[in-house]
Design a protein around this nucleic acid. Sequence first.
DNA 1: AAGAGGCCCTGATAGC
DNA 2: TGCTATCAGGGCCTCT
Length: 286
Amino acid sequence: MPELPEVEIIKKSLQKNVLFKKIDNVLIKNRNLRFKIQRNFKKLIVGKKIINITRKSKYLIVHLEKNCFLIFHFGMSGTLHLIRNNNMHHTNLSFYNCKILPKKHNHVEFFFSSFKIVYNDPRRFGFLKFLFSYNELKNFFNNIGPEPLESNFNFNYIKKKLRNKKKNIKNLLLDQKFVSGLGNIYVNEILYYSKINPNIRGKYINNYKIKQIIKYSKEILKKAIKKGGSTIKDFKNVGGKIGSFQKEFKVYNRENRNCLRKDCSGKIERIVISNRSTFMCKYCQK
DNA sequence: AAGAGGCCCTGATAGC
DNA sequence: TGCTATCAGGGCCTCT
């Protein structure tokens, strides 16, 4: 679910709320996530102060004192919620708009002096991982490709990576080892803006198309962040802030609707690539 | 070695 | 109403 922009939004709201605060207690309600939460997880975290909050691709990184780190990955359905002590006032820190703390699937609660942060993940594709040193952190991201917003995602890098690649461009853009942070929504949008057929093999992506991919991946991600990310599924209790980039979708979830490009009379089609929904206009994307 | 496919989960929705 | 099937923003593992 959460792709780079959505994790960026979570990062910003956490920075606003928990930076330089001490974690007083940790309650583990369910260890079962993609990877089981470490046995000594609580012991490692309780009493430590949060000294920084950053993000790398779709990972949220909480920097704790004593040179250790807490990594969050949100999988398809992971969310964070802030609950205040006094009136149980609830703030959703994620792109899901949920006014009330979900009753089911709260995995971990982090207690601060006047509120708690709850990690909730129905599908359990996300995970939390404690890292013991900066070195471990560096190794953790060793095999992850550059983000579209970073300068090393450039023409020469992509050109080299696409050489002789038989894999289609859609799967390549979803491959976090090639470029990190993109998911199904943003890849669909980037390929539409770049006028590229998602089924084209990497090796047939010409220089012009490479430049378009660079341009639009940056543009779309920046705009999505500005709009607060994309909120696909609203919970029933609406209120408060939600992302609005879904209103800007040109192809994602727009099957059978008109192509929005000027002078194009095509309709958006839904095809399946590697078992995942792919939306495109076959007249625009060649 | 690269690439395709299965699989890990729950929940919402559509169709009968 | 209650079944079944399908779909969902991800990525790891295994097999060829």
